[in-house]
Design a binder for these strands. Structure first.
Lengths: 348, 348
DNA sequence: CCCATAGGTGCATACGATTGCAAAAATCGG
DNA sequence: CCGATTTTTGCAATCGTATGCACCTATGGG
């Protein structure tokens, strides 16, 4: 069989092919596909027609090489068990797509060397910016990105370094809101199963919560780290229940709160909110499911993502722009997992 | 201020810089970083040293331009509400990272023109392959990818076209297993709230289920499309309960099953599994949560992802390789949401 | 000790686009 | 209708790397 290969016919069509077909120069083709370039209407039309016939589309990679921008954003994420992240990720991807960017995903579970390898790969792809939604990114990431001139925005994550941009919810205010709500509900023995205390989100929520209690002269009856892990939080809840008999528990995020509720109900035989009130943080979709009906502080994922995209693109446009830290306020969503103060509706 | 810009110092370091620093040619540098190229050990060492000092890393985009492979895999996904997808996505990304590939995410909710735009962008990035986990990808995707010579693997999705590779669980067998289990449990009035009947997953599960019932001469007492949407399924469940009083319901996936259970319990006051058994499909993490404790057919996400990656990479290596359709068997995971036949343990 | 062979290395080109510059064409005012 | 602008267009260089080819250097066998 000496037939010429079929595949030859479908070889890549380049701007040169289009130029030839349209009888113009290659640069003309390029300009037609470069927004803001100087092209006459008739030229544009001829080229577009030829391009359409040949099925031509500009090669983004080649373009990136010369413009120095890949229009790729690196997203570093740890795990996706916590529903908040898939939710945010979907929004982020959509928002960036609308701006002509795309998301390259990097899953980096651990900390340390594995993470550093990922960082290297991130830079290899010449990403224009990075959204870091993973705890445990070594500080080296930031210095290397700084050196490479790649803007980084921390999503739902804080960092002491002022040169780092970040978008979070107002975790301190959120924690305090929960305290005020529980106090108004007449709770006296209030416990806290916190988010991981190695991260600012967990610490700030806890701090705000304690501050809120302290305003009424109260201390948490118990406080333990749930590590943002369902199973850990569930075990802790059981232990706290048996040891301290709290009348309310504030859990550092919804994902853990579901585990806590299950442990209380099915292992301890506790009725929620009759015996104990439970409040979470995030307002993921499942919080509204009847099985949990969880009172929780909403993180406005939409606005957080919007802010993230805005900051990131601004820094890409204008590299010298100073870092910015944004905390977005979120309302307490009152549902059925915690006793509601009598006069709550009147108050709010 | 006529100071030279600080930024100048951090300008990109290229293979030429490394070559100069090491006193060798640029091609030598390239070879050192190209696995399988011919380089002497001493050369390799000199170059690596210089590279390390300058902080050089090869530019993946430039490399892609010349090799014609980007080492980017496009992942097209619809929504991430169904936990099965984040779970699978995390695995997929990890598996591909291990092979030196990375995932570029495309969220395409709807069908039709929006999707086609996304397809265009996908091709613009010169992805080496595509994993399609979204329903409603127009057939045009496939023809265009075929033309462009880009392999596509459908993940958890079927398609009549034999030229398309796909990885699914064995949906027919899974549906039948559920039927057998429910029959063995002595259920007589069995309903089905199916996955979207526009997709093969939904249809196959339903067909297998019906076949299983038919083996015992039974028909579903009711059968309706839940569209893979929680709210739709919940409403349908309520309607079916009120109209048909089933003693068991097989729901087309876990995500809907949770909604169904909530509707039955909290709207209809039904006790599960005492009044009615519920069985799902997927075995997402939440299925094991005590609140649902859902009996369900496991989709082995790990194996499905593994197969997907294997097939995709194989087709990238060897473009003429024929398409392959794989259905991975998954066990029925017996939990507490459905009555368990007396002799079940003996049987299995 | 010499020649055939294999393995390393450098030169130069190619990948597919963007973009500064200069020439050509179109526009405009007088 | 002509000269001065302004707009279009083409030419050619460039981005950072991979790779065919030719050349050079060891190596080993006879």
């Amino acid at each position: 069989m000496l037939m010429p290969r079929e595949r030859a016919t479908r070889d890549k069509v380049t701007s040169l092919d289009v130029a030839a077909a349209a009888g113009v120069s290659q640069s003309a083709v390029s300009r037609v596909f470069t927004p803001g370039a100087s092209v006459s209407p008739k030229m544009a039309e001829r080229v577009r027609k030829a391009a359409a016939e040949l099925g031509y589309r500009p090669n983004v990679l080649a373009r990136s090489l010369i413009t120095g921008r890949s229009r790729i954003i690196g997203l570093v994420v740890a795990y996706l068990h916590n529903q908040f992240y898939p939710e945010a990720m979907e929004r982020l991807s959509n928002a960036l797509q609308a701006e002509g960017y795309h998301v390259l995903v990097f899953v980096a579970m651990g900390r340390g060397p594995e993470v550093d390898k990922v960082i290297g790969e991130l830079l290899d792809y010449q990403v224009d910016g990075i959204v870091a939604a993973s705890v445990g990114l070594s500080d080296e990431l930031f210095t290397r990105c700084e050196e490479a001139g790649i803007p980084v925005v921390l999503f739902n994550r804080g960092h002491a370094d002022a040169r780092l941009s970040e978008v979070t919810s107002d975790n301190f205010a959120g924690g305090r809101k929960v305290a005020e709500f529980l106090l108004a509900g007449g709770h006296k023995r209030i416990a806290h199963i916190s988010g991981w205390q190695g991260a600012t989100t967990g610490r700030d929520r806890a701090a705000g919560f304690r501050a809120g209690l302290a305003a009424d002269g109260l201390d948490p009856v118990a406080e333990q780290d749930g590590m943002y892990k369902r199973e850990v939080a569930a075990d802790v809840a059981q232990a706290i229940w048996e040891a301290d008999r709290p009348d309310a528990i504030f859990v550092g995020n919804d994902h853990m709160a579901f585990g806590v509720m299950d442990a209380l109900r099915y292992r301890c035989g506790v009725s929620i909110p009759h015996d104990v009130s439970v409040v979470g943080y995030d307002d993921v979709q499942a919080a509204a499911w009847e099985a949990y009906d969880l009172t929780t502080v909403r993180q406005r994922a939409g606005r957080m993502v919007e802010a993230t995209v805005r900051m990131l693109l601004a820094q890409i446009e204008e590299p010298e722009r100073p870092a910015e830290k944004i905390a977005i306020d979120g309302p307490l969503i009152v549902r059925g997992s915690a006793r509601v103060p009598e006069d709550w509706n009147a108050r709010v």
